[in-house]
Amino acid sequence: MLEIDTNLLESKLPGFSNRFGKDVLTVSDHRGDLTIEIQPSVLRDALMFLKATLRFEILMDVFAMDYSKFDPPTRERFAVIYNLYSVSQQRRVRLKVFLNEDKPEIESVHDVYASANWFEREAWDLFGIVFKGHPHLVRILCHHDFEGHPLRKDYPSDGYQRLKSASPAAGI
């Protein structure tokens, strides 16, 4: 079991460990990138807390990872990573949640950060992560006939798929 460096966490993000202490799984500071791994169940609350209280105003990026071929094996197969930035304090934090292979689901944060909308759609398109509560979770980059999720490690890089039908009459 990894020891959590509460001092590090407290010095960087005061109040965070008080609030989410029991849900923090690991904290690391590799090459100066503060990374906090938390339980998926509190992710939405944690992001709201970071935005409102600690003033991390920008959600720079949301993306997924597939650790199935990583050595050593990780807690779960999938991870979703949230890169946050505070314009007012000029600092960053990275939140990471691990998701189960059979049911990669997490709550959407599109209403917390407007930028999350497309990033979540992309993570769904490329990795098949389901964002619960997302208003329009459809493919964004691949064509509509695409089957599977190409950035998963078990998808071949040249697994070319033909378009079978015309694009659906896209209405508003």
Binding site: L126, I140, L141, C142, P150, L151, S157, A170
Partner: peptide
């Protein structure tokens, strides 16, 4: 609608 130039950079 985007993705008309998705060239699979990350893969």
């Amino acid at each position: 609608e985007i993705g008309y130039l998705h060239r699979c950079f990350e893969k």
